[in-house]
Design a protein around this nucleic acid. Structure first.
Lengths: 154, 154
DNA sequence: CCCGGGTGCTAGCAGTTGCAAGCGGAGGAG
DNA sequence: CTCCTCCGCTTGCAACTGCTAGCACCCGGG
C-alpha cells in the first residue's frame, strides 16, 4: 500500500491538472503547507500584548485561565512552551479564540483564503477528511489565481 | 458566451471522474471505515480509525508523521496525551486537518453543527464566479458520495 | 529448522511541562 | 517605621512527554 499522503497529494494534483486544462489558466504554484516547526516565542508576546491591552495583571489572568502565575510568566517570556490545553485555557482567560493562539503558536496554519470558507469546509460533517483536503487544496489554488489576476484592494 | 452552467458541469464531471479513477480503491476503504462518521471521544481512537481506514501501518504513519512508533502506539491507545505539535504532525501524516484532531482532543471547540459551506463559498470574495461554481459542484458531488457511503451515520 | 523482515507493544531513560513555595519590590493604612 | 497586599519572577520538584532499545508474534524463503 502506498503512502496515503502521497495518494491524496496525487489526487489533488490530478484534480488541479484537470481543472487547469479545462477551466483555463491555473498558476502552477502549489506551495506546500508551512511547517509546524515554526513554534516561536511570539505566542508569549502575543499573550502579553493581549493581556496588557485588557489591563489585566499576570496573576489575574493566571487565575481566570486556571494556570499558575509563575508558569504564565514563563510562558509570556518564552521560557516555556505551553501545551495546547494550557493554550486553550489562556485563550479562554483572555476571551479570544483558541485558533488565534494556535496560529501564533504555529500549530495551526493560517490559510490564505477567506477563513470563513476554510472553516466551513473543515467543519463540514458531510465531507470525508480526504475530500476536505482535496477541496481545500483546490480552493487555495483558486484563491491564489484570483489574487494574481485581480489583486483586489485590501 | 456559452451557457456557464453546462460548462461548469462538464468540467466538474471530468474532475469527478478523474478523482474517482485515481482515488478508486482508497475512497472505498475510507468510506468503509466508520471513523469519519462516528464521533469517538478520544483522539487516539480517532487517529487509529483514520490510520486503519487508510490501510497504513502504525510504523509507517509514525515515520511519515515524524514521531516514534512506540509513542504513536501509546497515543492511539490513550496512554499518552500528545502535545499539539505532535498532534499537528500526526494530522499531516494522515493528511487530515489539524483542526479535526484538535476537536477530537478537546482543545478546540467543535464548530456549530453543520455550517453552510455553500453560503461560505458563494460569499467568498477571493473566488471568481466560475471557480465558485466549480467548487460548489465538486462539493456537492463529494457530499453525495459521502451520503451514499455513510448514510445518516446513526 | 533458522533467518530476515513485518506487525504492534513494553521498559527505561533524558528532557520537558506545570506547579507550590518563596523571593525582592512597590504602594497604602496604621 | 511596621504590617499588609499586590506585582512579577526564580527556585526546586513531581509528573509527564517522547525517545531508543528491545520484546513477542507472524509470515515467506533457504
Amino acid at each position: 500500500m502506498q503512502n496515503p499522503g502521497n495518494f491524496v497529494r496525487e489526487q489533488v494534483t490530478t484534480v488541479r491538472e484537470t481543472v487547469d486544462r479545462v477551466a483555463g489558466s491555473v498558476a502552477e504554484t502549489v506551495a506546500d503547507a508551512p511547517s509546524v516547526s515554526a513554534v516561536s516565542s511570539s505566542v508569549g508576546d502575543f499573550i502579553r500584548e493581549q493581556r496588557s491591552a485588557a489591563r489585566v495583571s499576570l496573576r489575574e489572568l493566571a487565575r481566570s485561565a486556571g494556570v499558575s502565575n509563575p508558569y504564565l510568566s514563563q510562558v509570556e517570556r518564552g521560557l516555556r512552551k505551553p501545551s495546547a490545553e494550557i493554550l486553550a485555557s489562556i485563550a479562554r482567560g483572555l476571551k479570544i479564540s483558541a485558533e488565534s493562539l494556535y496560529e501564533q503558536a504555529g500549530i495551526l496554519d493560517r490559510r490564505s483564503g477567506n477563513p470563513d470558507t476554510v472553516a466551513a469546509i473543515r467543519s463540514d460533517d458531510a465531507l470525508s477528511e480526504r475530500h476536505k483536503a482535496v477541496l481545500l487544496e483546490l480552493y487555495e489554488t483558486y484563491v491564489r489565481e484570483h489574487r494574481a489576476s485581480a489583486p483586489a484592494a485590501g
